[in-house]
Amino acid sequence: MFQETVQVLERLLRSPSQIAKHCAADEDPRALFLASLCATLLGAAAFGGVLATSRGGLQLLYSATKVPLALVITLVLVVPALHGLAASLGQPLRLSAVVSLVLAATGRAALVLLALSPVVWLALDRGIGYHSSVLLAAACYALAGLSALGLLWHGVGKSLRGAFVIACFGLVLVPTGAQTAWLLRPFIGRPAQARVPFLRHRESSFADAMYLSALSSQGIYRAPEPNSHPAPRGATNLADDAEEAP
């Protein structure tokens, strides 16, 4: 079992086209699924843990839990969308093939994140600021996303149509992933913060924040709408937490 998982992970890194073919052929997808899931959980947990090293303490555990959780929740939400997009754009794939493909791509991206973790740790250890660490994390996600894109393209069909399917999928993946991550904040944690919350109090949403930012950039300033949803247990309100301020 362990040896088989290692073999699959090696193929995942070395030959994305073979993995994509494997997904399309539906040759017993369980081994690939389990190996990809392991890679996703392990890579994302390591990267999440490293991101929290600047804050340390309980935040390490929280981030190591929440980054994989955000990835997996996003996958659950967007896999049917890729299935529908591929079918309506004339590249129909089985749902099991789409699941294998997306999970394999995520696993590959998570392995890239795992490889980048020491670099990020070193940068954080050298004392780069909070905002720089956010940018560094975003760059790492972009790099990991690129590695996943290759595998996905092979799987959907390496053609203009395949590229269009992936571009449309990106339109669904980005807002969904952003909103999921927004709900599970904070991931990095501010060093000045005294108490480490597992979840922040719900402050509007990622889309709301983008909308308000877009208005602000045009010189229109509005306060966020009052939150109608109750805060989850254990969550803290950023506004109430004076030490959260940079």
């Binding site: 539906d26 996958l75 659950v76 749902l95 099991s96 699941v99 999970l103």
Partner: peptide
């Protein structure tokens, strides 16, 4: 393992579990 996955990650695991019901016969069927 299958039970846990189908409970927690069912939107991902269900198609895989059902597809691998008869793994080697799938190619012909497809």
């Amino acid at each position: 393992t299958s039970f846990l996955l189908s409970l927690l990650l069912w939107p991902l695991w269900l198609p895989i579990a059902l597809a691998s019901r008869k793994p080697s016969s799938l190619v012909g069927a497809r």
